[in-house]
Design a protein around this nucleic acid. Sequence first.
DNA 1: CTGTTAGCGCTTTCAC
DNA 2: GTGAAAGCGCTAACAG
Lengths: 334, 334
Amino acid sequence: MNKKPTLKDIAQLCHCSITSASRALKNSPTISLELRKRVQETASRLGYIPNSLATSMRTGSTNTIAAILQDFRNPFFAVFAKYIEEYARDQGYTTLIITTNESAKKEYEACMTALGKNVDGLLLFPVQKDDKSVLLLNEQHIPYVLVGRCFQEIDTNTVLTDDEQGAYLITKHLIEKGATHILFLNSYRYIYSSRAREKGFQRALEHSTVMGDIVETSMDFGNTRNTLKGYLKDGHTYDAIITFCDLMGFEAYNTLHKMGLSIPEDILLASMDGLQQDIIFPVELTSAGTDRKEMTRHAIDLLLELISHKQAGKEKQESKKIILPQFLIQGETT
Amino acid sequence: MNKKPTLKDIAQLCHCSITSASRALKNSPTISLELRKRVQETASRLGYIPNSLATSMRTGSTNTIAAILQDFRNPFFAVFAKYIEEYARDQGYTTLIITTNESAKKEYEACMTALGKNVDGLLLFPVQKDDKSVLLLNEQHIPYVLVGRCFQEIDTNTVLTDDEQGAYLITKHLIEKGATHILFLNSYRYIYSSRAREKGFQRALEHSTVMGDIVETSMDFGNTRNTLKGYLKDGHTYDAIITFCDLMGFEAYNTLHKMGLSIPEDILLASMDGLQQDIIFPVELTSAGTDRKEMTRHAIDLLLELISHKQAGKEKQESKKIILPQFLIQGETT
DNA sequence: CTGTTAGCGCTTTCAC
DNA sequence: GTGAAAGCGCTAACAG
């Protein structure tokens, strides 16, 4: 026998109806103990696995959420994917993880895939090159929560960290450590958190004599390295570097190190994310970040709330915006 | 309107049958151009997204594969997940990524989930604490490919790297660099690649005066650190460390560094994976590894071959075992 | 060129 | 306690 066994097969073998077989497998009290046992034994003997597609078709819910995020080569997203999948599973949900590579087109396609598969809701780490995906999700009336980034003009359920505060903390820290001229390697300004971090950086510099420059670069492999090299040609006066995220901080460390600079003696380095909470890396960067497990919990709790709200047939309620605090994590680089 | 539009809705609006609507959306030449246009416009106006559950029920294939792997906190798996999802998508497949956290129980559940969702096939990075999952997959006659690890007693389609060779290369390299007493921090011996790497390590030591010790530890957060600290108490004579994988190498670097040791001056460090091919880390470890993109391509090509083979109704063919070579990547730690 | 019918595997009335 | 029938949304076989 090469085909997956179905309820029908079980029913035939047990000389009962498909309905009874279904109920027996659920241990329904309306079925005689004898039949229940018979059905369950047959099922396990055949290696029966319920076809969840059929169940979903019938019941209208898949018990699946989608998580759409950027790129697993960045441990920031990889770690989130892990925590999301883990926590969602604890709540009885399967997670469909899709990556976008920071491409708006792929993001849109990811949403289409998720919608086509009838996920009950989704967590979106938005690319923010455009807002098509969010508009799509709104139009399709599917519960979703934005994570990490948000759109100022669109009202959405969102879970963020206080990026402005994180950048402020890290900048203040560098100033305390004696920085006089800081280079901030930021990510693209279309990203909300990039603008927020820029604000925090500038607020920390106010009323001080410390100088700060901001460059826009990206998380792509090698970009931080190339940008940094360009800025550290002879004659520069930078004594501190801030990077948008730890992944860029890694590249910066690697680059400075190879240029023969000692960190933190010759130059200070700090970044944002605080990944050392989740993974031990060769060098611990000084970084600002938040607890990603907690952030995940908030995001999924909110999403599941929206889902059950919708399944109960209620009207859409007012959007929630949760902002988690950032804190400073002292590493070896300052 | 709050419900997802279906073909029925479109058919009603277009005054045609559901079948015609279906065909029109597929641009079937058997439908008049006029109707095709009408249907397509209506579909896009309504924001119609085909229900892939229904399609799958009908056609019997989901165009989805599952990838079951360990833990995204290890960039090794995160990077694989990325490449798998990317390449699978290029081939028209969605990937259901599930993590096991090195738990046999979760692995089994992951397989059940994937089977219940009727994936067309799966890539399994086996935990190897037991073989229940593999037996389940065999019993369910679903196409699958093991990646990275394999069972010696069970005949399966597998894509591996030459772990024995990698460990050999890295050990020889350390010897050339002057190592006299090497500590190999290996992972659990129930893992195939752990045993293979051990073999390579020992082969490299043969006919030499270099001493080598092997310790079993794990990839879990902090374990390598704790083990290493225990072994580097005063009086030890180790002048080189090898770790089972880069993630453990990171911990080792971090630990040695904090103990005040200079690498490679005071002690040599090398590991396996070669993650610097995919991600720039603060420090580049000397490592042996393979091209993960290529490995992914091999694994998915093989899986898709098995899938189409099965869909064509053919009998199971002989298993293939693909072993990719490992090469040495010189870093800063030797 | 178009429509009718049947059915994928399951759950959910409703009836006995 | 148990079963028959309907239907979730779609496609494929067949008919016209």
